[in-house]
Each structure stands twice: as structure tokens, then as C-alpha cells.
């Protein structure tokens, strides 16, 4: 039996239709308390529409959203913090004033608010910009301020819509570490949408990939990489290249091997979870009396999974 208390958000047949266009098609999801839930999909897949319905900004055509078992419409505002994809800040206010305004709107008590602002600015490395107008910040600083404004009321659930878009590697690392600490140290449930596969892979406990409004797959990053895509590729260089053809035949006869080809004098073997199969491959080749000069492995990536599921065609 499923422990319902473990799930913070549940979508039930969540559907959104715009005239004849089906933006979200019967989405059923359960997001666990304290997990980082990666939400992936190409442009126009229905991610943002789904998230807008999940936070109560958009009314579903059918279905509904439950937050801790309660319908989203009746959930107390403040349970969710949203960091939008765009930089949603007031350029004419200082960093401190931007955060304070949102804090006031969430009715955060004055003394808590004051401390909260200090803490957030410190954690997001913006302390020296406290009194700086938001319009005068760099792109990375604005994005960190954008995040701070989503967190000032200490929400249980944090929705981060492409939080690191346009950030330099240093700023991205700061942000990733902070998101990680939010989840692992502060126990926040985080819904993360991103186009950066590395980000999703590094931060997410589970990943949902959707396209054309439908949920295609939902699993941990590791499981996805083991099951979906073109698999890992093992490159084997033999001491005697004349034996390549025989080795190719041998590999093709082995179980769990997806494809074997000779490319530029090397044997390329494609298989899921190739790491676990590699000792068996080496043993079989050596039993043929052929020695191996070099081997390398290229793991199946989340990007491979994503491309495999959603195709290579451009979207807008």
C-alpha cells in the first residue's frame, strides 16, 4: 500500500486545453516530500503549463492538483514558493526592498523578515548588494535575487523554473550548491525544470520527461540512463586488427548487446549498463586468443535519454 503522507503534490488526470490544442494531456504525478523532482521536456512540451496549474496560477480544463491531500484552490498561500523562469524583480527597488515586499505580501513578521533577508542575501552571495537597485545587478545576481524572493517566506515546496538559465559556470555552481542544501539540509521539496541535462542529472532524485503534454517517463536518473536511449558505447582496440571481424561476430552473439560495428580499426559495442557487461566481453575475447590493447567506455547520458524519447526535431 502507498504511503500517501510521503507525497506532497499529486496531480490527478491534469488536463489543459486551449481550443483544439491539448497542452497537458491527463498528467498523473506524485512528488515525494523532500525530493528534488526534475521536470524535463522540449519547448512546448507542457512543463510550464503543468507547473502553473500545480501552483494555482492556471485553472485546469480537467483534473486537479492536491497539495498534501488538499485541493490547490483551498491550500494556504505561502506553502509554495515559485522562482519563475524570467527575471521577475522590480528594477526600481533595491535587493533588500524586493525581498521585503514579497515577505510583506506573505505576511512574514517584521523581525523574522529582517533576519530572513540578511540570511538569504548572505547564502546567495548578495550581501554587498543589499542596497543596490535590482536594475543595476548583473544577470547572475538578478537570478539569485529572483530565487531569494521565492524563498523569503520559507515555503515547504519550491518550484524552480530554469533557475540557472544564462548563468556563468561559477554562478551556476553557487546556485546548484544552494539548491542541494535546500533539499538535503532544509528538507524542502523542489520541483526543478531545466534544459541543462547536467543540472537535472546532478540535482534530481527523480526525473519526469514529458512531451506533447504527456508524461513519457518518470524514474531516477540512473535508471533512466540504464534503460532508455542508445546505451553505453565500449570501444575496443585489439592487438591484431585482422581479428576485428571475428570479434564483431562474437559480440553480436552475446546477450544484452544492442549493436556492434567496426569503426576506424576499432570494435564499437553498444549496450545498456555496459559497465556490468564489460568483464564478460573481455573474457570472451581473450578466450579467442586475441589480446586487447585498449578499451574505453562512453556512458549513456540523460541527454541521450531525452533525445531518444523526444526526437531530434527542433521545437518552438
Amino acid at each position: 500500500m502507498t504511503d500517501l503522507g510521503a507525497y506532497v503534490i499529486e496531480t490527478q488526470n491534469l488536463t489543459k486545453k486551449y481550443n483544439n490544442f491539448l497542452a497537458v494531456d491527463g498528467l498523473n504525478l506524485r512528488i515525494k516530500r523532500g525530493e528534488v523532482f526534475g521536470f524535463l521536456g522540449p519547448n512546448g512540451a507542457g512543463k510550464t503549463t503543468s507547473i502553473k496549474m500545480m501552483v494555482g496560477l492556471l485553472k485546469p480544463t480537467e483534473g486537479g492538483v492536491l497539495i498534501e491531500g488538499e485541493e490547490i484552490e483551498s491550500v494556504e498561500k505561502g506553502k509554495i514558493g515559485v522562482c519563475p523562469q524570467d527575471l521577475v524583480i522590480w528594477g526600481g527597488l533595491t535587493c533588500e526592498e524586493n525581498i521585503a515586499l514579497i515577505g510583506d505580501m506573505y505576511e512574514v513578521p517584521r523581525n523574522v523578515l529582517k533576519e530572513g533577508i540578511k540570511q538569504l542575501l548572505r547564502d546567495l552571495i548578495l550581501s554587498d548588494k543589499t542596497k543596490t537597485l535590482a536594475s543595476q545587478l548583473s544577470g547572475g545576481m538578478k537570478r539569485r535575487l529572483n530565487l531569494a524572493m521565492a524563498l523569503i517566506h520559507d515555503p515547504e515546496i519550491v518550484v524552480l523554473d530554469e533557475p540557472s538559465a544564462g548563468l556563468d559556470p561559477q554562478s551556476r555552481l553557487v546556485l546548484w550548491e544552494y539548491i542541494h542544501s535546500l533539499s538535503k539540509e532544509k528538507g524542502k521539496t523542489i520541483i526543478l525544470t531545466t534544459h541543462l541535462m547536467e543540472e537535472a542529472d546532478r540535482l534530481s532524485d527523480r526525473i519526469a520527461i514529458m512531451d506533447h503534454g504527456k508524461l513519457l517517463v518518470l524514474d531516477t536518473p540512473e535508471s533512466l540512463k540504464k534503460k532508455i536511449g542508445r546505451g553505453d558505447v565500449v570501444e575496443i582496440q585489439l592487438s591484431n586488427p585482422e581479428m576485428n571481424e571475428k570479434v564483431v561476430s562474437l559480440m553480436r552473439s552475446m546477450e544484452g548487446i544492442e549493436e556492434v560495428k567496426e569503426i576506424k580499426g576499432k570494435v564499437n559495442v553498444r549496450a545498456f549498463d555496459a559497465v556490468s557487461k564489460l568483464p564478460g566481453m573481455i573474457r570472451s575475447i581473450e578466450e579467442m586468443g586475441v589480446s586487447i590493447v585498449d578499451t574505453s567506455i562512453r556512458r549513456n547520458t540523460l541527454e541521450d535519454v531525452f533525445i531518444h524519447l523526444t526526437g531530434r526535431g527542433l521545437r518552438e
Binding site: 501552483v55 494555482g56 519563475p84 524570467d86 522590480w90 505580501m105 524572493m149
Partner: peptide, 17 residues
């Protein structure tokens, strides 16, 4: 247009405010 109203809408702010 800048999304700030949407940001305010999800808070406890009322239309009157």
C-alpha cells in the same frame, strides 16, 4: 508584462491591496 503581477498573485495579497 514583466510577470511581477503573477509573482504577487501567488502571495497572500488581495485585489484590494
Amino acid at each position: 508584462e514583466h510577470g511581477t503581477l503573477e509573482r504577487l498573485k501567488i502571495t497572500k495579497m488581495k485585489s484590494f491591496d
